[in-house]
Computed example of a mutant assay.
Amino acid sequence: MAENLEQSLLCTEITNVVDEENGMIVEKTPISQMGFPLESEEMIRGMMDKEKQHLPSDDYIKRLRSKDLDLNVRRREALNWIWKACEEHQFGPFCICLSGNYLDRFLSVHDFPNIDKAWTVQLLAVACLSLAAKVEETEVPSLIDLQVGDPQFVFEAKSVQRMELLVLNRLEWRLRVITPCSYITYFLRKMSKCDQKPSNTLISRSLQVIASKTQAGIDFLEFRPSEVAAAVALSVSGELHTVHFDNSPLFSLLQKQLGIELQGNASYGDD
């Protein structure tokens, strides 16, 4: 996990590579690159303007909270398996967040005729994890070997590949998405009195918290990625008593969006 995080901090150029096994073009720049180099006010503001394009449909959380009990249950099972599989393969937090993003976005725009059958969403989970690993990780196991973590079903590679193509089409091939991970160093830096690059400890801890929120239930979906990142940065910085609110317009905007929770913790680090 630590090695994956360290590799994610490296800056590389964007390249498109043909995945020979699955016969498709995948953008191979790690999603983490969106967060760490982009720390100017202008670029962060641009990300905040675009982040809603990378979220599930507006009615998704309402469906999860109302009559779609089967959808809610299957979603939770799928996310739990993704978490276990990422732990066994030592995939980083970015991969977990991407997998969850793909899963929720797909479920929000695609009606499964057999959502009550466990195997359908399990197959989707495998496909989402496979796509996320190809985007983010440097080493990706075969589709058969990917299926660890005590899955209820194990699928042939061809079945997973067909689901991958369905996911890609429904997501309009948007795999490079903005997640809370994309913002984390920016907000950690803004909460530092020295406005300096955050320590690896702060970054690693923050990413772990963000990844854990994929299992925290549907309430997590109410907030935009920038809001989640700001709240996590606040919490983690508060643990080490290093919080100092920056006076930049962007940070003031996030304070207003998060409301009283952020204001109520403004005294961290002043004691």
Score class of each variant (00 low, 15 high):
141 P>L: 05
48 M>Y: 06
146 L>W: 04
209 V>Q: 08
190 K>R: 15
225 P>D: 01
128 C>G: 06
23 G>P: 01
102 Y>R: 07
157 A>E: 15
107 L>S: 00
133 A>F: 04
1 M>T: 11
27 E>W: 04
75 R>P: 05
113 P>T: 10
118 A>N: 07
52 K>D: 12
218 I>A: 12
206 S>N: 00
265 N>H: 15
66 S>G: 14
260 I>G: 02
31 I>D: 11
137 E>T: 04
39 E>H: 11
9 L>T: 06
49 D>Y: 09
16 N>E: 13
53 Q>G: 00
94 F>G: 06
83 W>Y: 08
182 S>E: 06
237 S>N: 09
49 D>P: 00
232 V>T: 08
166 L>P: 01
261 E>Q: 14
140 V>K: 00
59 D>E: 10
17 V>M: 03
106 F>M: 05
85 A>P: 05
168 L>A: 11
29 T>E: 15
13 E>I: 10
158 K>E: 14
25 I>F: 06
258 L>W: 01
5 L>M: 10
149 G>N: 07
262 L>R: 00
158 K>C: 11
259 G>K: 03
170 R>K: 11
194 C>L: 10
251 F>Q: 02
220 F>C: 09
6 E>G: 00
230 A>H: 08
255 Q>D: 02
118 A>P: 00
196 Q>N: 11
248 S>E: 03
149 G>Y: 04
33 Q>E: 03
94 F>A: 10
151 P>G: 07
83 W>L: 09
53 Q>D: 11
135 V>P: 01
231 A>I: 14
128 C>A: 13
40 S>R: 09
